[in-house]
Simulated scan of single mutants.
Amino acid sequence: MSLQGKNVIIAGGAKNLGGLLSRTLAEQGANIAVHYNSAATAEAAAETVDSVTANGVRALSIQGDLTRPDVVTEVFDTAARELGGLDIAINTAGKVLRKPIVETTEAEYDSMLDINAKAAYFFIKEAALHLEDNGKIVTIVTALLAAFTDGYSTYAGGKATVEHFTRAAAKELADRGISVNAVAPGPMDTPFFYGQETDERVQFHKSQAMGNQLTKIENIAPIVEFLVDQGWWITGQTIFANGGYTTR
C-alpha cells in the first residue's frame, strides 16, 4: 500500500509527535492539513507546512479549539475542501495534569476532560462523517491506561474514554472499511511531560523501560504510519508502545 496522494488531517500537527507525523507522512506522498490550537503555535504550524510542501505535496494549517464541536466541524470542513477530501485522521492533541484528586478543581477537571475526552469524541465523529471509505482514524492516548498510579486521575481518566470511543467507532465504521485505533505511548520525552514531574520521578519513569529512557516521538511515529497504511486490518485496538514500561 502507499500514502501517495492520500489526504491527512492531524490534530496537534504542528510540533512534537504531531509535527513529526506531518513531515513523515508527507515524505510518503500524503497531503497534510496541520491543525493547531492557539496563536502561540502558529509559527510552528507555518514551519511544519513549509517542511511538508518541500516534499512536493499540498499542505495547509488550520487553527481551532477542538473542545468546541462546531469548531471541530469547521476544521474538518476546511481540510476536506482545501485538500479535496480526507482519507486519514490522526489526533495527537492532549493535555497533561499531575495533581491529587483532593486538590483538583472543577475548572481543572472540566478542562482536562474537554481536551482529552470531549475533543477526541467529536474528532472521531467528524472523521467518520468526512473520511472516504477505507479511511483510517488514530488517536494518541497514554500507557497510563495500564498503570496503577497516583496523580493522573483526570489525564488517564480522560484518555481512558477514548478506548471506548475507538471500539464503538470501529464497529460502526467497519462496513465502510474504516479502521479506528488508539496508540498508547509511555511517558514521552516532550515538554508536556517534564512540567509535571520531579527529577527523581523522571529517573524512575526512565528506569521502567528498555534502555533506561523515556518514549521518544520517533518510537511512535512509525507505529501510526503502519496503522494508516499496511496495518489497516488492525481496528478497534489500543496499542501499547512504551518499551516495556507497563502492560495489561
Rank of each mutant, 00 (worst) to 15 (best):
Q208L: 13
L113N: 11
E108W: 07
K15Q: 13
Q203Y: 03
F148V: 15
T235Q: 02
S179P: 02
T166Q: 07
Q208C: 08
Q213I: 09
I32F: 11
F240V: 06
S153M: 05
T53R: 14
G19Y: 10
P185W: 06
V34W: 10
S153V: 05
A89N: 06
A42G: 03
D114I: 09
G84L: 08
A79D: 06
E197P: 03
T215K: 03
T139S: 14
V72L: 10
E218M: 06
N16R: 15
I115P: 09
D114R: 11
L3H: 05
A107V: 04
G5C: 01
T142V: 00
E108F: 09
E47N: 15
A117D: 01
L131E: 01
A54I: 08
Q203P: 06
T215E: 04
A80C: 10
S153P: 01
A168P: 00
Q213K: 14
T104W: 01
P222A: 07
I88Y: 05
D175M: 11
V224K: 07
A221S: 09
D50A: 14
A209V: 05
A128G: 15
A46T: 13
S38G: 07
L129M: 10
E225V: 10
L131D: 04
G12M: 00
Q203C: 07
E43D: 12
S61M: 12
A127N: 00
R81W: 11
P187G: 09
M188E: 05
D87H: 13
I234M: 12
G236V: 03
K95A: 08
D87C: 04
L97F: 02
N55S: 11
V102F: 14
A11V: 12
Y245H: 15
I88W: 02
T92M: 08
I32T: 09
A128H: 03
F148M: 14
A147I: 06
A40V: 12
E172L: 09
E163P: 00
H205M: 12
T238A: 03
G177Y: 02
F193I: 09
A241S: 13
A40L: 14
A156C: 01
S153L: 04
D70S: 11
V102A: 14
G94T: 00
K6I: 08
H164T: 15
I88D: 06
K136H: 13
G158P: 02
E82F: 11
Q196K: 05
A174E: 12
I10P: 09
A156I: 00
S153C: 06
E43W: 03
I62Q: 09
L227P: 07
S51L: 15
G158K: 00
V102E: 15
I90P: 01
L60D: 09
V162M: 00
I140A: 07
E43F: 09
M188Q: 10
L97G: 01
D87Y: 10
A46W: 08
S22Y: 05
A128M: 11
D199M: 07
S38K: 12
V57G: 04
F148C: 11
P191K: 01
T78R: 12
S111K: 14
L145S: 00
A59Q: 02
A79C: 04
T235A: 03
S207H: 01
G12Y: 01
P185Q: 10
M112N: 11
I115Q: 13
